[in-house]
Design a protein around this nucleic acid. Sequence first.
RNA 1: CGGGACGUAGCGCAGCCUGGUUAGCGCGCCUGCCUUGGGAGCAGGAGGUCGGCGGUUCAAAUCCGCCCGUCCCGACCA
Length: 577
Amino acid sequence: MRYSKMLIPTLKETPAEAETISHQLLLRAGMIRKLTAGIYDYLPLALRVIRKVEKIVREEMNQAGAQEVLLPAVQPAELWKESGRWEIYGKELLRFQDRHDRDYCFGPTHEEVITDLVRRDVHSYRQLPLNLYQIQTKFRDEIRPRFGLIRGREFIMKDGYSFDLDEAGADQTYTAMYQAYSRIFQRCGLRFKIVEADTGPIGGSFSHEFMVLADTGEDTLISCRQCPYAANLEKAETLPPLTAAAEEPPQPLIKVHTPNVRTINEVAAFLQVKPAQLIKTLIYDTERGVVAVLIRGDHEVNEVKLKNFLKVNDLTLASEPLIRKVTGAEVGFAGPLGLNLPIYADHALQPLANLAAGANEDHHHYLGVNLDRDAKVSHYADLRQITQGDRCPRCGAELEFLKGIEVGHVFKLGHKYARALKATYLDANGQEQYMFMGCYGIGVSRIVAAAIEQNHDDQGIIFPMSLAPFQVLLIPIAINDELTIKKAEHLYQEMLDAGLEVLFDDRDERPGVKFKDGDLLGIPLRVVVGPRTLAQHQAEVRHRQSQEIQMVPLADLLAHLQASIAQERDVPNHPHQ
RNA sequence: CGGGACGUAGCGCAGCCUGGUUAGCGCGCCUGCCUUGGGAGCAGGAGGUCGGCGGUUCAAAUCCGCCCGUCCCGACCA
């Protein structure tokens, strides 16, 4: 491709709207433009990278036994009502009507559609297992789109769905997908980590997320320094406390006047106790009623765990009037004593004695609270966020906290959708059985952003060979020198004939401009020819990542480039951790 | 949706507080000359509903109100 013919509108200055590095560089390199919040145009260079990602995804999915399909983006409400998700998916689901006022949505995911397809055309155990995937544009009306391609509302996703006879078969498929995903992200040159994850609104029994490690990542994950345990922060389990029972003898309950002392820090300072000796009492409103949640003063509630534990969809901290109504006191003085609500406590509180807590009375707290003596705790459970001091829930070793960008997610769904949409088959005995499903997502457009987050320097993008829009950038110096341009044209043709993906910078620009643009675009290999190098029958080859420069005889140039490309193409920049 | 910031040429910004010629600057873009190994130089030029609507005023980019849009921080997710 000739640079002069290609739409590559690079920018010298960083647009003010871009905060993260991948967003800035994608804009500056002329790869994307924003149409409206969370919705982007992909320009030619970006599309080439996306096609590279897609190719890797297709090769690995096909290799793993999956088949590609293409499902509609617009979906009828009926299917979503049948699965029950029309009600529970929330505002993220973009809904609209057609001219007959029938309800539709733009697909954020395709469990309903694929299950509908399969239930209509698959009826026998002989047709299973079946593993179908597609690469398609999704729309999720995110509350807050941000970071360019990392969290768009419209984005390109690979979504796959498997249908197995039973759980044993589904486990095999899950493993195959897990391995295919590992290979995909390795081939994309990403440094990633696989973590246990919550299943969220997709549902199902368990899942793993593939996290690209990057400081700008939105997710926090924890990883054991000793054993293989790794989990998303919201999923990470906490160990029950080691001390079996209270060591100190229970003190009598004392009510203390605590004027205008509301927050944990204020109460701790006022009562001269540590935050860890306080009980934080939070009132939550759910679709199944109001509950109280107790947590140690220095801990935070993990609302995902709480949702799962309570088996609720809606979970919000109670409003001020509601708190007053159920506790009889202003916000800041709630406590477990005499509270007429179901009370759930984090297991870290169980062995603790002589704590401080709100008195459910304005400006008063209790000292000497012993939960088993003074309150009615319905259940103790793991309800809190893991923190820096926690140990690995598997082996007890030290944990590491990391930031990551989720690029892939595999779920074991079980019978959830098969049951809701009646996807059944007849087994060998003529018995009707539900299909056992799994689903598998990859953020294709997000991978492009994640790759840039991990591979850049102060001059621009450093694409791994496997994703680069071009393998080679050919720059002739002194464009008006007839011999140079003639030789460069000749080299360009040779490279094309040899099947190299080459961008020929034939613009009438000064060398500095071409070098700056070249570094910004991140093409792995740069070949420069000019009067000086040609006089020695050589070309200069520069490696974008290492910045190493080699002078290569023109006669060896093609072979040299092909060797470099072959060496790097399927080898990640960094080994998988 | 809660909190914060912003909206002036394709991009980055100044002007606004204290209203008043033709709304500026840098980059980019067009033409010509010149230059050609890290975003050159000179000369000429194009490009603006100052986010929108309404109000105050003799006069509004500037003051007031409403609306729209964008970004950042939190609750959601490939």
